[in-house]
């Protein structure tokens, strides 16, 4: 099963390589990864999506918790949560396709953020499924380049991941 694990860790050199190294060393897989400092500049938030059965996920969270740089973590998929990813995609926009791209972008509530005579750069946010669906819809027109941030997420409701 796919899990989204969010980690608060020390904003220190080497911390990221320890987290990523752990996945490689113990043969766990990383589907997506994103990381940035939080409102507290001493802390970074890292979100990783990974796939594994319950036993593997339990080991992943235990080993992550064991890393000295990891302060706190949560498996967002254990409860209700909001999952978002941002994608920038360059698609061909020539002739009739130019209108089609605009219409599809509207349907997906995406925005066209850059324009040239032959292509559009579209920005879209949503969960990974929505982004995949948009790419599928654009495939006949011609997708030229894709940049995805990887999944970020947060729990719904009053639950807060902080110190």
């Amino acid at each position: 099963m796919r899990h989204i694990i969010s980690i608060l860790m020390e904003n220190e050199p080497g911390a990221l390589s320890r987290v990523v190294g752990l996945f490689a060393q113990r043969n766990y897989n990383i589907e997506t990864l994103n990381v940035a400092p939080t409102d507290d500049p001493t802390l970074s938030r890292l979100t990783v999506t990974t796939i594994g059965d319950d036993r593997v996920i339990e080991q992943i969270t235990k080993h992550l918790n064991k890393l000295i740089d990891v302060v706190k973590l949560v498996d967002l998929t254990e409860g209700n949560h909001i999952e978002r990813e941002l994608m920038l995609v360059k698609v061909k926009a020539l002739g009739a396709a130019r209108d089609e791209v605009k219409r599809t972008a509207d349907i997906f509530r995406a925005q066209i953020v850059d324009v040239t005579p032959s292509l559009y750069t579209v920005q879209i946010t949503g969960d990974a499924g929505k982004l995949d669906a948009f790419l599928q819809a654009m495939a006949p027109v011609g997708v030229l380049e894709v940049a995805r941030t990887g999944v970020s997420g947060i729990a719904r409701g009053d639950k807060v991941l902080s110190l």
Binding site: R55, Q59, K62, H63, N65, K66
Partner: peptide, 11 residues
């Protein structure tokens, strides 16, 4: 003492 040792190879 190490939680990651528990249920690692045998439940």
């Amino acid at each position: 003492i190490d939680p990651s040792s528990v249920s690692k190879t045998v439940r």
